[in-house]
Design a protein around this nucleic acid. Structure first.
Length: 491
RNA sequence: GCCGCAUUCGUCUAGCGGCCUAGGACACCGCCCUCUCAAGGCGGAGAUCGGGGGUUCGAAUCCCCCAUGCGGUACCA
């Protein structure tokens, strides 16, 4: 039987969890589920200067929200822990020692000043930048001197001076680089922490990772990793470098930071922001899956189960793709439309309450079918339902007078509307609609024109959910009161 | 600079030698429906497949060169 598939998502806690990370996590998760394997979460917190304390909580929360539960990792544990690299320091040091002992790595005592000067000089001379291997062949005496001076060394991998290194990328095929292009990369920093390169190789091996799906910014360092695997005598897992996600114009990389040009709307990039804005996790997952992967020429909507069933590395794209907020919104709107009324209401309530409304379930539920097909984001409901959740409306009085009418006419319409509605035997929308149609006819007005003032009077806006249904839910008392208020304002 | 990767409508994509006068989706435009706004229906515009050479009876699909974009070139991941 084939080896169990084990994949991992290994973010660095340096900032909030963003789109690119989410896509990578999702692909790993889908791949694991598709193959009945394990999805491991590992925190690569080896950079103490860039560490951000909020990062991990936001990450875990977002992953859970997206439904990408990890089988091993923080909070759930597992047999290959610990899952924070900062808790595995001794391990990396031990492996670094081993390579030194075998002559495959060496201690480097060069100061960062010297390295900076070296780079500057190389730049000025127009030669290829890189470490000059100053410490690769130090004498016993030189080493003793450095040690005596208390210089804290780094550990560097001794890259073969000649030959080439090749590895296989699942998507791009065989990639070969000349070893002369490769630097003696740092494995262990002078503070004793591993660099990404050492940490990732040691952990992926120790954790039994079989496939590495990661962003293609790593493609260039894969040959170095191959050399590291070779140095340890380990087999390198299969690599899949996922294409970059570009900004909506398709011209630049999607910034992790807020990118906002003149006249441009805010572009969300952090997962918790999408959640706050009212995106559904199922829409998010569906859409994210399609950024760099496709099933066929037409299918775009997939349930989670279908995604798991269909996800296939062979259909992952090689080229970068722009992130289309328009399309995400469209997809979100479709998902919202397909929600049951109860479900939608439950998702709306926390948002409405957060916006300051004392929204009760029954009222929101009643409006759910009315607003469902008008929402693109759950958050749209805040403005859409304001009139239904608030005691008194706020709107400029002049809004009561539609463009083609004058104030006196508007007032007359409102007054007659009030009279008609007050006299009706029932307030069901079919009844009120019939009555107001008749009224409009009698006044020689089109319904749409006759309703203009009334809509503003009842909802405070010229655009609203269907008026008659809304009035039925609000109830006669509320409707008449609002009409009175409007009439008074025009009087 | 050097190394690597990528290149089909504005955007996401289908396409893996003939089914392509290149299909679908978002966005856009028009019409219909309509109490506003949506939703929905119908239709439209939009890609000489980055450019140039080959290979082949035949290329978006295979090969080479160029251009452009992106990534890497850290004691950051």
């Amino acid at each position: 039987m084939a080896q169990e598939v084990r994949v991992r998502f290994a973010p660095s806690p340096t900032g909030y969890f963003h789109l690119g990370g989410a896509r990578t996590a999702l692909y790993n998760w889908l791949f694991a589920r598709h193959n009945g394997g394990k999805f491991i979460l590992r925190i690569e917190d080896t950079d103490r200067t860039r560490y951000h304390p909020d990062a991990v909580p936001f990450l875990l929360e977002s992953l859970r929200w997206l439904g990408c539960m990890w089988d091993e990792g923080p909070e759930v544990g597992g047999s290959c822990g610990p899952y924070y690299q900062s808790d595995r320091i001794a391990l990396y040091q031990q492996y670094a020692e081993q390579l030194i002992a075998e002559g495959k790595a060496y201690r480097c005592y060069c100061s960062s000043e010297r390295l900076a000067a070296l780079r500057e000089q190389q730049h000025a001379q127009g030669v290829k930048p890189g470490y000059d291997r100053h410490c690769r062949h130090l004498t016993r005496q030189q080493i003793a001197d450095y040690e005596a001076a208390g210089v804290a060394p780094v550990v560097r991998l001794a890259i073969p001076l000649e030959g080439e290194t090749a590895f296989e990328d699942r998507l791009r095929g065989r990639i070969v680089v000349n070893n002369s292009e490769l630097d003696d990369l740092v494995l262990l920093k002078s503070d004793g922490f591993p660099t990404y390169h050492l940490g990732v190789v040691v952990d992926d091996h120790l954790m039994g990772v079989t496939h590495i799906l990661r962003g293609d910014e790593w493609l260039a360092s894969a040959p170095k990793h191959q050399l590291l695997y070779d140095a340890f005598g380990w087999q390198m897992p299969e690599h899949v470098h996922l294409p970059t996600i570009l900004d909506p114009s398709g011209k630049g990389k999607l910034s992790k930071r807020r990118q906002r040009g003149p006249g441009q709307e805010d572009q969300l990039t952090f997962i918790h922001e999408f959640r706050q804005a009212g995106y559904l996790p199922e829409a998010m997952v569906n859409f994210l899956a399609l950024v760099g992967w496709s099933y066929d020429s037409e299918t775009e909507f997939f349930t989670r189960d279908k995604l798991i069933r269909y996800f296939d590395l062979d259909r992952v794209s090689k080229s970068p793709s722009a992130f289309s907020y328009d399309k995400l919104q469209h997809m979100n709107a479709v998902y919202i439309r397909n929600l049951g009324d109860n479900d939608l209401t439950n998702r709306l309530l926390p948002i409405l309450r957060a916006a300051g409304f004392k929204a009760d379930f029954g009222r929101v539920l009643a409006f759910a079918p009315l607003i469902k097909e008008r929402l693109r984001l759950l958050g749209d409901a805040v403005d859409m339902l304001r009139f239904a959740l608030v005691d008194s409306l706020e709107y400029p009085t002049e809004d009561l007078v539609p463009r083609k009418l004058d104030a006196a006419t508007a007032r007359e319409i409102l007054a007659r509307t009030r009279t008609v509605l007050a006299a009706l035997p029932s307030f069901q929308h079919a009844v009120t609609e019939a009555a107001l149609r008749e009224l409009a006819d009698g006044m020689g007005l089109k319904l749409r024109d006759a309703l203009g003032s009334t809509r503003v009077a009842i909802t405070g806006a010229a655009v609203s959910p269907p008026l008659f249904e809304s009035m039925e839910i609000l109830g006669r008392e509320c409707v008449l009161a609002r009409l009175d208020e409007a009439i008074a304002r025009l009087g």
